[in-house]
Simulated scan of single mutants.
Amino acid sequence: MFIITADQIDSRHTKDAVSGTLTALNTKHARALELPAERTAGDEIQLITDDAHTALTITLGLFRESRWSIGLGVGDVALPLGESTRASTGDAFFAARAAVERAKPRPVRFACEGGERVDRQSVEDFDALVSILLLVLDRRTDGGWEVHDLLAMGMTQAEAAEKLGITAGAVSLRVRAAGIRQEDAAAKALVRMLEELNAMSRIGR
């Protein structure tokens, strides 16, 4: 199971982002969440999913907002789950708590930790590769994100060019500069790594 715990950065001096983020997460990812994402502290959110793609997608989405320290925990959970996310527990929850604390001083404000059944070296490898991807995304321009979002909606590059009022060549340049194709390839590989980590947590259950 995957637990994401995200702590709002500098919440004392910024507008509360928890309510809006929870609404967005519970609307967009409702089918993939084991229980609704919740506020677990004044400026913290937590969610549970058993889907690797969803775990990575949410991680990347929260990073893009630039206002969260993100901890991803992978491991076993106590079953049945509690009546709510806050009422649930298990190794993955403890791992996510350790991860978010480790994430706070890091440049990308992300960290991953595994439960007792998850191989530590495999977790460290995943953590390192995600951090590299996040550094790449952190350098993406607004124009790059603009093209990324249109392609993610299913548009072709030609359609994106028409939508933006620029040439197809200009879109192609943005795709290359933004590393959009490389991000897609990396994300697929990272999802496979997460699936393997999740499988480890089930051994001996």
Rank of each mutant, 00 (worst) to 15 (best):
L25I: 10
I180P: 03
R106C: 00
A103Q: 01
R102S: 09
T89S: 08
H13S: 11
S69N: 14
I9L: 13
V77F: 13
S11F: 09
P36M: 00
R67F: 01
R120T: 15
L62W: 00
I166Y: 00
L56M: 01
R67E: 00
N198T: 15
D51W: 13
A178H: 06
L25P: 08
A199G: 12
L150E: 11
G82Y: 02
A186K: 08
T21P: 09
I132V: 14
I132L: 02
A189G: 14
I48G: 05
G114A: 10
H148L: 04
R174N: 11
E124C: 02
D138E: 12
P107R: 02
N198M: 15
E38K: 14
D51M: 09
F110E: 00
A41F: 13
E113A: 07
H13Q: 15
K188F: 12
R97L: 08
G143C: 12
A55N: 02
A98P: 07
D16V: 02
F93A: 00
T57P: 00
V77I: 15
V118M: 05
A111Q: 05
D43F: 04
I3L: 07
A177H: 11
T27W: 05
E159Y: 11
V130W: 04
V18N: 05
A37E: 03
E124T: 14
P36D: 09
D51K: 13
S122H: 13
L22P: 09
W68H: 01
V136A: 07
G115W: 03
T156I: 13
P105F: 04
D50P: 13
A128V: 07
A111P: 04
V175D: 10
R181N: 13
G114W: 05
G75K: 07
L134V: 05
V18S: 13
I9S: 12
R31H: 15
V171P: 12
D16L: 08
D7S: 05
A95V: 06
A30F: 11
T40D: 06
K104V: 03
G115C: 10
V100Y: 01
A98N: 03
A24L: 09
A189Q: 15
L25V: 05
I180R: 02
F93P: 08
A52M: 10
G115A: 05
A161N: 06
R117Q: 12
T23R: 09
T85L: 09
R181C: 09
R86N: 06
R140V: 01
D51A: 07
A24E: 11
Q157Y: 06
I132H: 00
G115I: 04
R140S: 02
A78C: 12
